[in-house]
Design a protein around this nucleic acid. Structure first.
Length: 632
RNA sequence: GCCACCGUAGCUCAGUCGGUAGAGCAACUGAUUCGUAAUCAGUAGGUCAGCGGUUCAAUUCCGCUCGGUGGCUCCA
């Protein structure tokens, strides 16, 4: 059976944040093992008994769901039904699509199977017997899977009271062990994950060892939904969307402030790190994209159109030379900048940073909130260097990623993607490049997994995934080696021996896109941004109209000191103002009444504590300024 | 793009088994001038996403379009 590609928690973040990893280990009563089958296949692959047993439980529940679907949808053909993080799914080919409404019916049928308490009985079949069995059961996808099993594979079938499925196991002992489940959603899924293939129906479910675990899981999912950046972004007035420009956020004043803060902080960090910033065009002649290879490999993701004025209904073939494309990436511009004059090895490594606006024509169905948009900016940079400099440069970027993510207390997972089948360049070059990336990761002490064959055609890469509130991974930082682009642009530098060499290019981003990263941060902080990022750092609230004058003085002093302050002088009671302020997630509230007015002081309370602190006006401004310093 | 679901006031959501809609918060007006998590009263606000069909009658049923959500594919 297919192994779980999404299971496993990310390594704990350097600051050991509790926002991630809602693993429910330890909540179940001590395991006594009586609910597992005796056959302990693959036990070693799991880090704990709990993980191993949950895996078996989820796998078993998937089988129960399959049987239930078969009774309700006669003729259903099953493909794969693996356990995944927190649950399982099964992909099934049915004549009528499965709707969300039918989930309750499927659940009812599953409950009957659980109640029946059938034993999961394992038998080993010969290949011809197994093929004959699944042909008789009219399960062509299973027959196909048997054909794809390795020569020496032991072919096993599990029988749960009549319903039989091809499966490597292990399972729990009885269907009665799978009581605490819930079906969550249905979706389409392509056969073998290939969009050219038929679309199957995928049903997702979750299952836990105890009722309490299930309830806790559902509650946590509900809590996570409250942190959804789309919800918070609307509530906190950070951004909006409009149907006239799907996939393109409108940054409202507070969101724009947050965006600018992050852009500035990253720009400052990179300037310190020896980068120089540039600004480049958005619209380019098609010829550029032909040179870069985007026209051949990326055209469908680009927005492009004809230059010049065309009369309505003018259907003449467009002149190719007039096609313009909106940039989906900055790299070609940077190639042109590098190539504008003769370069010496003394200039290397050359690091060019660009926060330009990018457009990608993403499929409509793929768009969502800030995490997948059509218009965005990256904290993009390209490093031009010699082959000998690759290791050092990559290591430096990995350290930057770790430094920045630690500052946000964000956990991440690193993936090293190696050469794909249709690669460009010699094996020798790839050997060196992959080794350089791997060494850099090891030297930096960053845990990583290897994604065999998942590299770009032009070079291997390291991607860094971060989790959102619902623990879905999103690719943010990336480090990609590129041996091809410099060649396509005919770039060279003069080495010490006065001969010309082709530089290597490293594409790298730390946040990735500002849009996606901000979306992640909103969820990570549940909207409660640290002082330095907060678009509103302190709100000044008057107790009554009598102290408006003093409040105004404080506002002016704060703003003059660069503190992002606002003034709530509304005709409301202070209790109401506190409540409203708390919902706004602003870090500090300054309460100004007649006492403060007389003493010339400021009384503040923070989001984290109800305790008041009173201080002089200069002390207040200095404290706000001190806490607003960026951590990197 | 594919599969399923959703679209009611600025926001969160009721409701209508077909007879053109309601709450809370927000907004606005008035009263109140108040010391640490909601002062009182009132007012206004909706082509029930859009277009078409069925019907005496559509927000409700059907179709299409647009947008969104969850997945698939792809990717920052």
């Amino acid at each position: 059976m297919v192994s779980n590609s999404r299971a496993g928690d990310y390594p704990p973040p350097p600051g050991a944040s509790q926002s991630f990893g809602t693993a429910l280990c330890g909540l179940s009563e001590t395991l006594n093992g009586d609910e597992m089958e005796e056959h302990e296949k693959g036990r070693d692959a799991f880090e704990s008994d709990e993980a191993y047993r949950l895996h078996a439980l989820r796998h078993s529940t998937a089988h129960i769901m399959a049987e239930a679907i078969q009774t309700l949808f006669p003729g259903a053909k099953f493909t794969i039904g693996p356990p995944i993080k927190d649950g399982f799914f099964y992909d099934v080919d049915v004549a009528e699509p499965i709707s969300e409404e039918s989930l309750t019916d499927i659940e009812k049928a599953m409950k009957r199977i659980v109640k029946r308490n059938s034993k999961f009985e394992r038998s080993v079949l010969s290949r011809p017997d197994a093929v004959a069995l699944f042909e008789a059961l009219e399960q062509p996808y299973k027959v196909d899977r048997i054909g794809r099993l390795p020569e020496d594979a032991e072919i096993m079938v599990y029988d749960q009271g009549g319903f039989r499925d091809l499966c490597a196991g292990p399972h729990v002992q009885r269907t009665g062990n799978c009581k605490h489940f819930k079906l969550l959603k249905v979706s389409g899924a392509y056969l073998d994950g290939d969009s050219r293939n038929k679309m199957l129906q995928r049903v997702y479910g979750t299952v836990w060892r105890t009722r309490a675990d299930l309830d806790l899981y559902m509650e946590r999912q509900e809590e996570a939904r409250k942190r959804d950046h789309r919800r918070l972004g609307t509530a906190l007035e950070l951004f909006m969307f409009h149907p006239y420009s799907p996939g393109a956020p409108f940054w409202l004043p507070k969101g724009e402030d947050l965006y600018n803060t992050l852009q500035g902080a990253m720009r400052g960090l990179l300037m310190e790190g020896g980068y120089s910033a540039v600004r480049t065009p958005m619209l380019f002649d098609k010829k550029l994209w032909e040179t870069s290879g985007h026209w051949d490999h990326y055209q469908e993701v680009m927005f492009h159109f004809a230059e010049g004025h065309h009369a309505e209904g003018d259907s003449d073939e467009e002149d190719d030379s007039q096609i313009l494309g909106l940039k989906p990436m900055n790299c070609p511009s940077h190639m042109l900048i590098f190539g504008r004059k003769r370069r010496s090895y003394r200039e290397l490594p050359m690091r060019i940073h660009d926060q330009g606006v990018l457009h990608r024509n993403e499929l409509r169905g793929a768009l969502g909130g800030l995490t997948r948009v059509r218009q965005f900016c990256q904290d993009d940079a390209h490093i031009f260097c010699t082959e000998d400099q690759i290791a050092g440069e990559v290591e430096q970027v990995i350290q930057l990623v770790d430094k920045v993510y630690s500052a946000f207390d964000l956990g991440y997972r690193a993936k090293l993607s190696t050469r794909p089948a249709d690669k460009l360049g010699s094996d020798d070059l790839w050997d060196k490049a992959e080794a350089a990336l791997q060494n850099a990761l090891e030297k930096a002490g960053v845990e990583f997994v290897i994604n065999e064959g998942d590299g770009a055609f032009y070079g291997p890469k390291i991607d860094f995934d971060v989790l959102d509130a619902l623990e879905r991974p999103w690719q943010c930082a990336t480090i990609q080696l590129d041996f091809q682009l410099p060649r396509r642009f005919d770039l060279s530098y003069i080495a010490e021996d006065n001969s010309a060499h082709v530089p290597v290019v490293i594409h790298r981003a730390i946040f990735g896109s500002f849009e996606r990263f901000i979306g992640i941060l909103i969820e990570h902080y549940a909207g409660e941004f640290p002082m330095w990022m907060a678009p509103e750092q302190v709100r000044i609230a008057t107790v009554s109209e009598k102290s408006v004058g003093h409040g105004q003085d404080i506002l002016e002093a704060a703003q003059a000191g660069g503190v992002k302050a606002t003034f709530d002088d509304a005709d409301d009671k202070i209790g109401k103002k506190i409540r409203t302020w708390h919902g706004s997630k602003v870090p500090y509230l300054a309460v100004i009444g007649e006492r403060e007015q007389e003493d010339g002081t400021v009384s503040i309370r923070s989001r984290k504590s109800r305790e008041m602190e009173t201080m002089s006006l200069p002390e207040f401004v200095a404290r706000m300024q001190g806490e607003a310093k960026p951590p990197f």
